[in-house]
């Protein structure tokens, strides 16, 4: 029963590509924002914190619509990016990746921020007394110590991206081969007669991918903790 039709296989490949790029492109920003929220002391911090967490609370449809307004071809950011860099999000798989990145961002930032908050800053001071400048301290002490948080953030954000539906379909629609990701494909199959078998196959794959992500995150973070000697 797991003979996938070409359309179904395409949806899976697309989903993996979208999720990969959503995570890869948002990771540097995720680490940066997590750092600012964990360590920074500035006036607008609650606003930034709220903004980052907004996609978690808002209906995905609203997030998708806001993305459409901002990043659509006629939207202010969309037009700017198109004219200056030739980057187009509207109705492309890149738009799906953007929607997934935004939806996964709060999960990623939360996981990384928590791990930054548990880093013993006295270790960073110790590295400073040994002659390491702040950039080196970050690369050789802070980053390795927050690695478990980063891994968990990556996996959560990836799993979220694999399951993202509302914002994606609102922002970039449901175009086969371009924006029809795994959830959109399942939704489409449930809307047509005789689509049940296909929907079930994709659902099983979706469940398997999510389970694998959770188990992987558990295993990886346990491995890293063992190396750090903090069971």
């Amino acid at each position: 029963m797991f003979d996938l039709s070409p359309d179904e296989a395409m949806a899976i490949r697309l989903s993996l590509r979208v999720a990969f790029w959503a995570v890869a492109a948002s990771l540097p920003f995720g680490v940066l924002v997590a750092f600012i929220l964990a360590r920074g002391r500035f006036w607008g911090k609650p606003v930034l914190d709220g903004l980052v967490h907004l996609p978690l609370i808002l209906p995905p449809v609203v997030t998708g619509y806001l993305l459409l307004v901002l990043f659509g071809r006629q939207g202010p950011l969309g037009r700017f990016l198109d004219e200056t860099f030739g980057i187009v999000f509207a109705f492309r798989w890149t738009g799906a990746a953007l929607a997934c990145a935004i939806m996964g961002f709060p999960l990623m930032v939360r996981a990384i921020r928590l791990s930054i908050e548990t880093v013993d800053r006295r270790l960073e001071h110790a590295a400073g007394t040994l002659g390491a400048n702040p950039a080196w301290v970050f690369a050789t002490v802070t980053l390795p110590l927050i690695l478990p948080g980063i891994v968990v953030g990556i996996i959560l954000s990836f799993a979220r991206s694999m399951g993202e539906f509302g914002a994606t379909i609102t922002f970039v629609s449901n175009i086969p081969g371009q924006t029809r990701t795994l959830p959109s494909a399942i939704y489409t199959l449930t809307q047509v007669p005789g689509g049940d078998a296909g929907a079930f196959r994709l659902t099983a794959i979706s469940v398997a991918v999510s389970m694998a992500a959770l188990i992987l995150s558990e295993v990886v973070s346990r491995l890293i903790s063992r190396r750090l000697g903090t069971p």
Partner: peptide, 14 residues
């Protein structure tokens, strides 16, 4: 270049 030995060692666990 002032070395510092802390009360609790502060070795890098990783």
């Amino acid at each position: 270049r002032v070395g510092y030995v802390f009360q609790e060692g502060r070795l890098f666990p990783h």
